[in-house]
């Protein structure tokens, strides 16, 4: 007898917003291990709100619904508790923390996540951490001097995005959300970042790639594509859906959606 395994990540009927203003209006999504999902949609459709709600931003309110991670509702958890379960959000606009070096920050972050996920004795020594950091920097073709720079301070747009992927590489999440990681990258930087993401992906994890454009999806191949409009997923399909959007834009879907809603 086989039991159907619980999916890694499930969103059920999610209604959420900010300052009483509802942005997500009944969103459902199921993502399982070994899957890359792309979430597309025009500006203001609620993509980044979804990312923040999943990561636990304190300013966002959840009015209804559940987010299950490995079958457990994570909505009552603080952002760090979620991170310690293996969730990761690559920010669209990473915040600068002056005076805090990448290396100091990441060593603390990596070790608190490692201890929570793999056990108290699984923290890395400073030496082990340095070795791991050098390895991941090389993988993302980042200069070693990144380690001693202050977190996101004075980083170019491209450097910030790479730094986010570096953090993902070190934190080894099981479920990663990439919020517009492709925006603001030139074609070479995009390729480097995409190579890094592809190298990090494995059958034990899942990814949700939030993007405005189809461009990134020719480098990171999604298994599923969803289109979000007005706080809901209005269309889901395979990679061909992204190509269709690239040709036709979002307007046809908007029209269809408006029709269905009326």
């Amino acid at each position: 007898m086989t039991l159907e395994a619980t999916p890694l990540f499930t969103i059920e009927n999610l209604h959420a917003g900010i300052e009483g203003k509802e942005i997500l209006r009944g969103l459902d999504l199921v993502i399982d291990r070994g899957e890359i999902h792309a979430l597309m949609g025009p500006n203001g459709s609620g993509k980044s709100t979804l990312a923040y709600v999943i990561a636990g931003h304190p300013n966002y309110e959840v009015y209804e619904g559940r987010i299950l991670y490995k079958g457990e509702n994570i909505l009552e958890m603080t952002p760090d508790e979620r991170a310690k379960l293996g969730l990761f959000l690559a920010f669209q606009y990473p915040t600068a923390i002056p005076g805090v070096t990448m290396a100091n920050f990441l060593r603390l972050a990596v070790n608190s996540v490692r201890k929570a996920r793999y056990g108290e004795d699984k923290a890395l020594s400073p030496r082990e951490f340095r070795r791991l950091m050098r390895e991941k920097l090389a993988m993302l073709r980042m200069d070693e001097s990144f380690a001693t720079r202050y977190l996101n301070e004075g980083f170019s747009g491209g450097e910030k995005k790479r730094a986010e992927i570096l953090q993902m590489a070190l934190l080894e999440p099981e479920f990663a959300i990439l919020d517009e990681t492709d925006s603001g990258l030139d074609i070479d930087a995009l390729r480097t970042v995409a190579d890094g993401v592809n190298a990090l992906f494995n059958p034990n994890m899942a990814m949700l790639i939030i993007t405005h454009y189809q461009r990134v999806l020719s480098y990171i191949k999604p298994h599923f594509v969803h289109v979000m409009l007005d706080g809901k997923i209005v269309a889901s399909g395979g990679p061909e859906l992204a190509e269709e959007l690239e040709v036709k834009g979002y307007d046809w879907l908007k029209a269809e959606f408006a029709e269905a809603a009326s």
């Binding site: 990561a55 636990g56 931003h57 304190p58 603080t78 952002p79 760090d80 979620r82 991170a83 310690k84 990761f88 959000l89 920010f91 990473p94 915040t95 923390i97 805090v100 100091n104 920050f105 990441l106 603390l108 972050a109 990596v110 608190s112 996540v113 929570a116 953090q167 934190l171």
Partner: peptide, 17 residues
């Protein structure tokens, strides 16, 4: 929020800042 989303507790994030 940024620091907490990387696994730091609120107190750890605050002292880091």
């Amino acid at each position: 929020f940024y620091l907490q989303s990387r696994g730091l507790s609120e107190a750890e994030a605050m002292s880091m800042i």
